[in-house]
Structures are given as structure tokens and as C-alpha cells.
């Protein structure tokens, strides 16, 4: 489109210098209202998870059978569960587990993907073939099923659940990284670095990976959302985080017996999962538009 070319020719230079790259990124991000709302929600959720012990007067584990199964009220805004525990407190506390485990899981899969994707994308050839065929196998197994299998084999607990989460995520991230690297590795500045005698590690670390960062950040954010979903799924099935540690999935599981009589016990944790996942997806979309404005068209 000639129009676009004209514009980009004008937009470089002084104006960008005056404000810096970050200014334009933030500006583009703020234009996406949904993403701003999502980011606010996530920040609130994180704050709530960190300070949950101070935010509500109730303890997440202490049972109080006198107040069991109460509907939402001024004292318990989300009501109480079958043991009389405040659901709001438990959701905040559950966020701590969900966020932490999904962050650990996604960090693990990203680390693995960085190594595998770099080797596959940068060196290509046999290593690429081997790694990518393995990833094809991973991707052909449904994610939740794979996580369940790994989780069942490893047992329960936060770190083990995180590992179970990480494995299906590796394939997606590796593919993404590999394709970004393959696009980058023929660019002239990589060739320039080679002409100066730069080693492969130097080139990968200084030129290739920093330039793959934006798609990686987006994918990272989106993965956080889907792994929250996955943890809840595992916990719901009794595989992930074990009671009494509250987790949104096991809260739903605990509440399902009372679905007809006390639906709030299922609705609120369910809503929490939905909102968290939606927020991360919206944030991911917003980041993509902000980091790479060309993708929007």
C-alpha cells in the first residue's frame, strides 16, 4: 500500500527520538480499552493474591460449621462453602496458587523452548528435524490429557503440577520461536555479525533472541491464561493441588455436590477461572498490537 509507505517514511526520525519506543508502545496499548481493563484486573488479582491474608478477616482454611453454606451477604460477599469458609478469601488465596503454578509452568516451558527452538531454528538440519518431529508428537496429544498423564505419574503438589503444565506448552512455544528465528537468521545484520567473526552463541544471545522477544512475550501471556485453565482442570479432577489448599479447580469440584441448592459455591470460583483466562487473553492481544503494530492489519 503506497499510503502506508509514505507514512512510515515520515514517522521515523526525530519524533520517535523525542518520546522513545516505549512511549509509542504504551500509547498503542492504551488505545485498546479491553486490554487496559484486563491488565488492571490482573494487577488487582496479583495484589489480592499476595495480600490475601490482610484483605479479609477470615482464614482460608479454618472451618466454621456454624456459618456453612451461606449465600452471599455483607459479611461474606461471595458466601461461604460447606465448611463455613469464606469463598472470597479462598478465591484470593486460590489465585496465589493458580498464578504461581502457571507462572512456574510457563517459565519452565519457555526455558525449554528457548533451548530447543534456538537449536532447531538456528542450526536447522538434522537437529531441527529431530526436535520438530518430537514436538509434532507432543502437539498431537491433547494438552489436558498429557498434563493428566504426567501429573498422575509424578504425583501431586505445586512443583509437580507445574511440570505437568509445562510439557504440553513446550511444543507450542518451540514452534513459535523456531519460526521467528528462521525468519531472522538470514537478515543482513546477522550476516554482518558473522563477518566480524562473532560466534554462534554471541549471535544468538545478542541478535536473534532479543529480536524474537515480542512474539515470545505475547505467547507467554497467552500461555499463562491457558495454563490457569489447565491447572483448574487438573485440580478439578483431583490431580493438581490438593485440599485444603484452595485452588479454583478443587473449589469447583467441592461445590459441585451443592450445584442445585447453593450454586454460588461453583459460580464464583468458575467465574474466577473464566475472568483470569479472559484477562490474560485480552492482555496478550493488546500486547501483540502494542509490540508489533503491523500484525493488526
Amino acid at each position: 500500500m503506497p499510503n502506508g509507505d509514505v507514512m512510515s517514511a515520515y514517522l521515523s526520525g526525530e519524533e520517535v527520538k523525542r518520546h522513545g519506543k516505549f512511549y509509542f508502545m504504551a500509547k498503542r496499548f492504551c488505545r485498546n480499552k479491553a486490554a487496559v481493563v484486563a491488565l488492571t484486573f490482573i494487577i488487582l488479582l496479583i495484589l489480592g493474591a499476595v495480600f490475601c491474608d490482610y484483605l479479609t478477616p477470615y482464614d482460608y482454611a479454618e472451618q466454621n460449621l456454624a456459618e456453612a453454606k451461606q449465600l452471599p451477604s455483607a459479611a461474606h460477599i461471595f458466601g461461604t462453602d460447606d465448611f463455613g469458609r469464606d469463598i472470597f478469601t479462598r478465591i484470593l488465596r486460590g489465585a496465589r496458587v493458580s498464578l504461581l503454578v502457571s507462572l512456574m509452568g510457563v517459565l519452565m516451558s519457555t526455558a525449554a523452548a528457548l533451548v530447543l527452538g534456538s537449536i532447531a531454528g538456528y542450526y536447522g538440519g538434522k537437529a531441527d528435524n529431530l526436535i520438530m518431529r518430537f514436538m509434532d508428537i507432543l502437539i498431537s496429544i491433547p494438552g489436558l490429557l498429557l498434563s493428566m498423564t504426567v501429573s498422575a505419574a509424578l504425583g501431586t503438589g505445586m512443583v509437580k503440577t507445574a511440570i505437568a503444565m509445562a510439557i504440553p506448552g513446550v511444543a507450542q512455544l518451540t514452534r513459535q520461536l523456531r519460526s521467528s528465528i528462521m525468519m531472522l537468521k538470514d537478515s543482513e545484520y546477522i550476516e554482518a555479525a558473522k563477518a566480524f567473526g562473532g560466534s554462534d552463541i554471541h549471535i544468538l544471545w545478542n541478535h536473534v533472541l532479543p529480536n524474537c522477544l515480542s512474539p515470545l512475550i505475547v505467547q507467554f501471556t497467552l500461555s499463562l491464561g491457558s495454563s490457569i485453565m489447565c491447572i483448574s482442570g487438573l485440580s478439578f479432577l483431583g490431580l493438581g493441588v490438593q485440599p485444603p489448599t484452595p485452588e479454583w479447580g478443587n473449589m469447583v469440584a467441592a461445590g459441585q455436590d451443592y450445584l442445585r441448592t447453593y450454586p454460588h459455591m461453583v459460580i464464583f470460583p468458575g467465574l474466577a477461572v473464566m475472568c483470569a483466562m479472559l484477562a490474560f487473553n485480552l492482555l496478550g492481544d493488546g500486547l501483540r498490537d502494542a509490540l508489533d503494530p503491523r500484525m493488526k492489519q
Binding site: 537478515s187 543482513e188 545484520y189 550476516e191 554482518a192 555479525a193 545478542n206 541478535h207 532479543p210 529480536n211
Partner: peptide, 8 residues
């Protein structure tokens, strides 16, 4: 000179 320099 646009593509032979790493823009970062």
C-alpha cells in the same frame, strides 16, 4: 543500512 543494523 536499514536491515544490516540490529534495530535494538
Amino acid at each position: 543500512p536499514y536491515s544490516s543494523l540490529d534495530s535494538r
